[in-house]
Design a protein around this nucleic acid. Structure first.
Lengths: 205, 205, 205, 205
DNA sequence: AATGAATGAGGATTCATTCAT
DNA sequence: GATGAATGAATCCTCATTCAT
């Protein structure tokens, strides 16, 4: 059975299995054996490829983060106006691909992991910075010097909505979630720049 | 050594030890033995009083939630105007007592626990509803029919800020966190009702 | 079943089981589970009392060493002349209690353990020093300033004979082994002090 | 990359790697994978060439023994007098090549291996017999009928000194070790044959 | 009331070994 | 000739939980 060049295939399968298993289990309390079984391999192979459990988790985290990043980039590419750029970033977080119970559980658990693992923490911090930077850049034309501050707030709202919506058992409503975040954006812009600014932005867009 | 009337003392000690241990460990990955040692009792006693580990966690969660609730109520009692009422609720979340790394870790882990334990989920949902209800009630004079919606948003912002601030290693800055949340409040009020409304509210109160 | 005060009993049983198991297996390649089964307890209990496998080994080593030390002391107490004192020390090493295949295997493995474990090495060095010191003290009246040197040699002969005799599968012949060591002693004394000295010693004895 | 005629090269490399690894690790607790890596090949190849782990160990043991034997033979060839012949055999054991920590660890572990593996035991017994035979033959002109007995004793002293010197962490002192063994030889000769014999030998030498 | 004693169950990790290529 | 792929079988260790005292 052993064919050559399996490494990337197995790694990918194990990473997906990890996210799914965390999602299914709802906690980091998943065993390597179950992850491996889900991926259709032995637990020994999982260790062979990743070294230890933490590395498996970190790989899953990197994967989730980079998928999210890709979604953000794809959204940004399609956006034409500053406003659209901000919306793209916000919507990426609540897309069907990511705003699922399993992925949400994974995210939540990565936050927990970050409290224990230095590497996990670093990943999360980097991701945080990147989101804020993306938001700030998109907001600059709309909010000027307030861009950074609004970006920071929006990032927090995204996380908060994500967290709260995810608590429910049912399928989370991504559209509603995104709407709530964008409402905060609108409010901030209106309040800071006055209606004029906002209107101007909208017109521009 | 066994004295009578120890039950409440032991229970309280074990609950505190649980929160501290979750805080210290940074995850739910704490053992009953360690919790018990921290509380100065045997692990057998912990089981004697709580039945099993999940009940210990749930008790710790109830404790954290009710302390938070008490802080909110205390703040509300001292508040005179609607605005002050909202601020009190927001500030309760970022008070020195709760906005600590250990408590934050506990909260985070309660969210995780809620994915596994029906009881934990119920506790969290109840707390969520209560916060939103409190906020909505306080906001009614300020925002009218928009109160509920703004309340929902504010609750999300609180959670998001809490989550993000807590990621850093250093002592979290409660004042800054509260300021950011209140800024959202101001923006929402300004944007929806215009400055006039807000001023009027303040005067009314 | 759990009665109080079992700790020392369990510890002793586990230590004996360890030595026996090393003897039976012929190497350090013994499992905690087998040791525990031999002692009639669960492997979890073995860990509970000793912490980890290395500590179990070290305890077994200490036990073996201290039993040997006790045998030496008992022999010394019964000895009347210097010569008898030396003989007592030598014979202690080849007594029926210690010159058994199992104990021998244990010793051999402790030497191996000493290459990995700092603690084991320390134990072995201390034991080495003590034997040489005992021998040297006993030899002083017989060999004067040469006592230390002869002691060192005798200790080496003891170990060498022990090692070689132990290689065979059959029951090792302790008497023959002791005789060979004492022959070296006689030769050293004769060669250094001349026959006169030796005869005098013998007459004294 | 596979070239023909690699077998002897690979085997030799693996054998050396085995001894080195046992030396480095200080115990038989070495993995085939590490041995193979040290030899620059895959662990599968090690199995391909040796069948299983025990055979790898046995090959390493044979190698060590035969190197030692070669050193003895070389020493014997250069020796002119009986005394020199004995000294050559003794010194071979403490030469720079063999009296190293790594080799010593290997020897020690071969003794352990001999308790488990029939083949290893046979190798060790053969080596033992050969050394004693060599010593006895060399001693015949010096000690006559006592040659065998003295040979047996010397062999034990060699092993004992080897074992004890090897325990220390520092570089073992081969010259001192050899001196101690030869001192026993001198003592035995003096004591048995009287000073005359010994002097005569020494003069001859 | 309180605990020491004890364990079953499980989990991460390791490793010798096999096999298809 | 050589190896990457793969795994079954251990093994150490942890831990929640129970029980007699």
């Amino acid at each position: 059975m052993p064919r050559i060049g399996m490494q990337p295939i197995r790694r990918k399968a194990l990473i997906e299995a990890t996210i799914d298993e965390i999602g299914a289990r709802g906690s980091l309390d998943v065993t390597v054996a179950r992850i491996a079984r889900r991926a259709g391999v032995s637990s020994a192979l999982a260790h062979h490829y990743f070294g230890n459990k933490e590395q498996i988790f970190l790989a899953a985290m990197r994967q989730t983060l980079s998928e999210y990043g890709a979604e953000v980039r794809a959204g940004l590419k399609a956006a034409r106006t500053p406003r659209e750029r901000v919306e793209a970033i916000v919507r990426a977080g609540f897309s069907e691909g990511h705003f699922r119970s399993a992925v949400l559980a994974a995210w939540l658990n990565f936050y927990v992991l970050a409290r224990t693992s230095r590497q996990a923490e670093r990943l999360l911090v980097v991701y945080h910075r990147r989101i804020v930077a993306n938001l700030a850049q998109a907001l600059r034309p709309l909010a000027g010097t307030a861009a950074s501050d609004i970006a920071e707030t929006l990032a927090a709202v995204i996380d908060g909505v994500y967290l709260r919506e995810g608590l429910g058992q049912g399928t989370p409503d991504g559209a509603a979630a995104a709407r709530r975040v964008l409402a905060v954006l609108d409010a901030e812009l209106t309040a800071r720049g006055g209606p004029g600014t906002q209107d101007k932005d909208r017109t521009e867009t």
